[in-house]
């Protein structure tokens, strides 16, 4: 046979043709004779080709649920996906830009804040010095620099900065008044002339957050009392 094959390759087809002409594909494993049940076969023969007409309303119900066009539906689905992707991309871009803008603004603001911090007196709520100019005018100084300017002629000891919760306003007024020397002596009182008012350092913790107007009002009240 080998010789024949070598001589003419076309013989190979002939050999296979002859050899396999009667060959049949074996049935599926479960269709072995022992698996074939006469009942199954009989029922299959009767019912396999059985047909019946359903009622007309089945088609009506089916028709209502059929998509108008699968092509259009699929295309719509595709465009919906594209639109969703675009929206997500757009939203992400906007969010990124917002974030970058926020970061940039933060970077600009930050040095200003740092510079501004020393410019704002920490002790703005506190009064370092009260000065009576002898005309019932009280000058308030609320930071160290201005206090030094106002009191440049005087020997002043600035108090330590005390940052603590302030006591109720009335108590503070009383304490302030008590710490001030009476600016008028008996003679001045009787003559009605105002002498020089000695300056005195006031502890800021005793003064708290009194405004100038409040302080003036209180001083006037005190003077009236003294009178």
């Amino acid at each position: 046979m080998k010789k024949e094959l070598n001589k003419n390759p076309k013989d190979l087809d002939q050999i296979f043709k002859e050899g396999l002409s009667n060959f049949q594909v074996p049935p599926p494993s479960r269709k072995q004779p022992e698996d074939i049940n006469p009942l199954d076969e009989a029922v299959k023969n009767v019912l396999n080709e059985f047909e019946s007409t359903p009622s007309a309303n089945v088609w009506e119900n089916v028709k209502r649920r059929i998509p108008f066009s699968l092509k259009v539906k699929r295309q719509l689905n595709w465009w919906t996906k594209v639109a969703a992707a675009l929206i997500i991309g757009l939203a992400a871009t906007v969010a990124l830009k917002e974030y970058q803008a926020y970061k940039a603004a933060e970077m600009v603001i930050q040095p200003e804040k740092n510079e501004a911090v020393p410019a704002i007196p920490i002790d703005s709520d506190f009064v370092y010095e009260l000065r009576n100019d002898g005309k019932n005018n009280i000058t308030k100084s609320n930071n160290e620099e201005s206090a030094r300017e106002i009191l440049s002629d005087e020997v002043v000891t600035l108090p330590e900065r005390v940052v603590e919760p302030v006591s109720p306003l009335e108590n503070k007024v009383e304490s302030v008044v008590s710490t001030l020397d009476n600016p008028l002596n008996e003679e001045q009182k009787s003559s009605g002339k105002l002498g020089e008012v000695p300056l005195r350092t006031v502890n800021t913790s005793d003064i708290g957050t009194l405004t100038i107007k409040e302080k003036e009002d209180q001083n006037k009240e005190q003077e009236n009392r003294n009178k």
Binding site: E51, T53, P54, W59, V62, K63, P67, L70, K71
Partner: peptide, 19 residues
């Protein structure tokens, strides 16, 4: 999405499938 084609397909196969 041609309705007449869909109905034709249903008519053609419905009896066998109903079986």
């Amino acid at each position: 999405g041609k309705a007449h084609a869909q109905e034709a397909l249903y008519t053609h196969f419905s009896q066998k499938m109903f079986g």
